[in-house]
């Protein structure tokens, strides 16, 4: 089964855009390349706190036209789980 390059490219773009927006809105002292896709968002890793979570939610809703659920902590476990959530929601929007 060949690798789905279109899907990978879409994911790469979302991931980069999310990193750039988070760096800018949360004043994170790293370049996008320094942020691993699996980096934990809360606690270790980026070490964001509960106020930062609000910023992330706004960042996702404003930049990706995706609504974050009230209890969306599972999507905020890492950058990759957040990208998974964004893609899943965008796919749902396309299907409707």
């Amino acid at each position: 089964m060949p690798i789905d390059t279109i899907r990978l490219q879409k994911r790469r773009e979302i991931c980069l855009k999310l990193k750039e927006r988070l760096i800018s809105s949360l004043d994170i002292p790293y370049k996008p390349d320094d942020i691993s896709d699996d980096i934990p968002l809360i606690g270790s890793g980026l070490g964001l706190d509960s106020l930062d979570i609000l910023e992330i939610v706004l960042c996702v809703e404003n930049n990706f036209s995706v609504k974050m659920p009230q209890n969306g902590m599972h999507a905020l476990r890492s950058l990759n789980t957040l990208v998974d959530y964004i893609i899943q929601q965008q796919d749902k929007q396309c299907a409707n």
Partner: peptide, 24 residues
């Protein structure tokens, strides 16, 4: 290709049995 959603195999040309996933 180091991102979730990629199918790989432990032998060249073998059927896919390994997939990359998001952590945790």
């Amino acid at each position: 290709i180091a991102m979730p959603g990629v199918g790989l195999s432990p032998l060249p040309g073998a059927p896919v049995s390994v997939s990359t996933v998001s952590r945790p």
